[in-house]
Design a binder for these strands. Structure first.
Length: 650
RNA sequence: GCCACCGUAGCUCAGCGGUAGAGCUCUCGAUUCGUAAUCGAGUGGUCGUCGGUUCGAUUCCGACCGGUGGCUCCA
């Protein structure tokens, strides 16, 4: 006598089935097409295996390939297939964790020797055999003793088992010869997996803890159909093509050289121009918004960083101390600065401040130095000398909201100018924090109010704030969807206190100002790196290192070309002449490869007519005859307005 | 920092136990060209650094320096 359960489907209809029925059975009853497309099931909101029996009344949704959860299931199963293959080829391997991740999966193994690229090929072949064998994924729930028995030869799994609390469900998945302690869910069988590729192997600490042993991690990607896999692999290639390190070399923007040191960027003339324009843009905007520019030393007494609280916290990220110049006491030690805030605070404190003076907004585009771990350095995106477009606002609590509001306005202006997409997060109070809840409450509410007033959508990063205050983080999304931390706005109650900052209130008593740290670009290095990838090296005209390249067809037009060039220079346009003894084709190609927005070709006809044959980058018309005057006028306007389009159609 | 891989001319790369090669760049010569590589010649390397093995090392081994990918998107 079987008990009946009520199963509510997404369309609201209810089916009655015997208890213990599986989602797969329901799907088959609903239609064979659905059954074939089914990947997993959503049972009472949780993702389940298709073959897991349901007991009690439930809601049920069949998950097909279109559901984002389906990919996760697929990839998680791919990880198991990977582990199955590794276990067969390397029986001595201990298995760690093997989750699905963004775009793929990985599995960690403890093996006597790291995997070689040849190993990966062999593993991939073995994986195809496992798929061919079409092992079913069988789920079981077991008691802890039973689990410990089954995984007695897997120390890493045993360690994980220790952490299970009383009454927590321990599930085990078996697929053919492979057994894993696993939360699931999985595909019905390994045969459902076909479009995958192992990408690379890398070391990874057990549980991400650098004090624990290093495991060997294999990364892979998996998709439901070949075209998705191909698209993804193509995307990886595209990312490689846009790699700012490669483009930086090709376009002669910057270099990092052993002679100078890792993470130290040398900005070549072409790259320096980009930074120069970015600085001009932001500094002009800051002055308009009543910020004040300051300059502070690169090296300061160490005591300052002790008082500010940086040194005790970040010592391993700072460069070591250096001694004083001759004559001074040997006890005086100096540090290269990892941030500017203490110096700005000292400027604030250099005279008495009244509540009427606030807010005081001190800005500095400044180089700071951070001794980042060598392994984390990456082109322009993680460096040891960074240029921050830093500013500190000292204000009263009642001014916070207005200040944040203006910063968001500035951020939006800046990021829109580049056509970046971005994501905003409000990070709230962490567990480990200083200051009372009341102050945090005020601060968080002010940030939230400013965000709401600007009508932007944002996420809440619960507990993600700095220990000294909440913050707003903005992540840039580049052209291929990767995210980078850019703008950051942080409230700080701690430093004003530590450094004894004050202002006289209307009650003529000393009060403590709030400090807001913010950087709009974040760092110029990272921002330029993102820009390079975002534009694939083809900068908008205002940022282009070389805006116009004048190309005379033969020596006969060299002089006329120089005249055009001078006209451009006089109009503030960065121009150059390519009158090298090379064919026209050669020079056109070179300008094209250097992604110069405008090529002004000057032949005999153009000389006679006072025109240029304009070849504008990316324009629909391959070339256009334009009077020199008109070109200069329009180019100037495009640069002035910081337009993203090189040569808009008329 | 840790693990793996990599390090040959300015750049991209080939080669390999018997003391180095291509293309591009650069220099010179010829060519004067109508929109993505004209032809020829030449310059250019202590094969990342230091040590070891060897009759002999760019090649094999070790250390160091540098680069690259990765280092909990939780069983």
């Amino acid at each position: 006598m079987s008990e009946q359960i009520a199963i509510t489907l997404p369309d609201g209809s209810v089916r009655y089935e015997p208890a213990g029925v599986t989602a797969r059975a329901v799907a088959e009853a609903l239609g064979s097409r659905l059954a074939r497309a089914a990947v997993a099931a959503r049972v009472n909101g949780a993702v389940w295996d298709l073959d897991r029996p349901m007991h009690g009344d439930t809601t049920l949704e069949i998950i097909t390939q279109d559901d984002p959860a389906a990919l996760e299931v697929l990839r998680h199963s791919a990880a198991h297939v990977l582990a199955t293959a590794v276990r067969q080829l390397f029986p001595e391997a201990n298995i760690g964790f093997g989750p699905a991740i963004q775009d793929g999966f990985y599995y960690d193994f403890e093996v006597p020797r790291p995997f070689t690229p040849e190993d990966l090929q062999a593993i991939e072949r073995k994986m195809r055999e496992v798929i061919e064998a079409d092992h079913r994924f069988v789920r079981e729930e077991v008691e802890r003793d039973e689990a410990q028995q089954r995984f007695r030869d897997d120390p890493l799994k045993l360690e994980r088992l220790e952490e299970f609390g009383e009454g927590e469900v321990i599930s085990v998945y078996t697929s053919g010869p492979f057994v894993d302690l696993c939360r699931g869910p999985h595909l019905t069988s390994t045969g459902r997996l076909s479009h995958f590729k192992l990408l690379h192997a890398a070391g990874a600490y057990w549980r991400g803890d650098s004090r624990r042993q290093m495991l060997q991690r294999i990364y892979g990607t998996a998709w439901f159909n070949k075209s998705d896999l191909d698209t993804y692999l193509h995307q990886l290639e595209e990312a490689e093509r846009r790699d700012h390190r490669v483009l930086g070399k090709q376009l002669d923007l910057f270099s990092v050289q052993e002679d100078v040191g890792p993470g130290m960027i040398l900005w070549h003339p072409r790259g320096a121009i980009v930074q120069y324009e970015l600085r001009r843009f932001i500094e002009d905007e800051l002055l308009r918004r009543e910020y004040e520019l300051v300059y502070t030393p690169h090296v300061t007494r160490e005591d300052l960083f002790i008082r500010s609280g940086h040194l005790p916290l970040y010592e391993d990220q700072q460069f070591p101390a250096m001694g004083a110049a001759g004559g001074e006491a040997e006890t005086v030690r100096y540090r290269v600065k990892p941030m500017n805030c203490p110096m700005h605070a000292v400027i604030y404190a250099s005279r008495q401040r009244s509540y009427r003076d606030l807010p005081v907004r001190l800005a500095e585009v400044a180089n700071v130095y951070r001794n980042e771990l060598s392994g984390t350095l990456h082109g322009l995106l993680r460096v040891r000398m960074l240029t921050m477009d830093d500013a500190h606002i000292f204000c009263r609590e009642d001014q916070i909201e207005e200040e944040i509001f203006d910063m968001l306005d500035l951020t939006e202006l800046v990021l829109r100018t580049f056509g970046f997409e971005y994501r905003i997060d409000l990070a709230t109070r962490p567990v480990k924090k200083i200051g009372g809840d009341a102050a945090w409450e005020v601060a968080e509410r002010a940030l939230q109010a400013a965000l709401d007033r600007r009508k932007v959508t944002y996420g809440i990063d619960e507990g993600g704030g700095a220990f000294y205050g909440p913050k707003i983080d903005i992540k840039l999304r580049d052209a291929i969807g990767r995210e980078w931390q850019g703008t950051t706005i942080q409230l700080d109650y701690q430093m004003p206190q530590r450094l004894g900052l004050e202002y006289a209130g209307s009650d003529n008593k000393p009060h403590q100002p709030v400090m807001i740290h913010r950087a709009i670009y974040g760092t110029l290095e990272r921002f330029v790196g993102c820009l390079i990838e975002h534009f694939a090296g083809a900068f908008p005209v205002w940022l282009a290192p070389e805006q116009v390249r004048v190309v005379p067809i033969t020596d006969g037009q060299a002089e006329a070309a120089c005249t055009v060039h001078r006209r451009c220079r006089d109009a503030g346009i960065r121009s150059s002449v390519d009158d090298r003894n090379e064919t026209l084709n050669y020079r056109v190609r070179d300008a094209e490869l250097m992604k110069v927005p405008y090529m002004a070709v000057v032949g005999q006809r153009e000389v006679e007519q006072g025109t240029i044959a304009l070849r504008a980058r990316g324009a629909k018309k391959k070339q256009e005859i334009v009077p020199v005057d008109e070109f200069v006028e329009r180019a100037r306007e495009i640069i002035r307005s910081r337009a993203l389009t090189v040569w808009p159609e008329r």
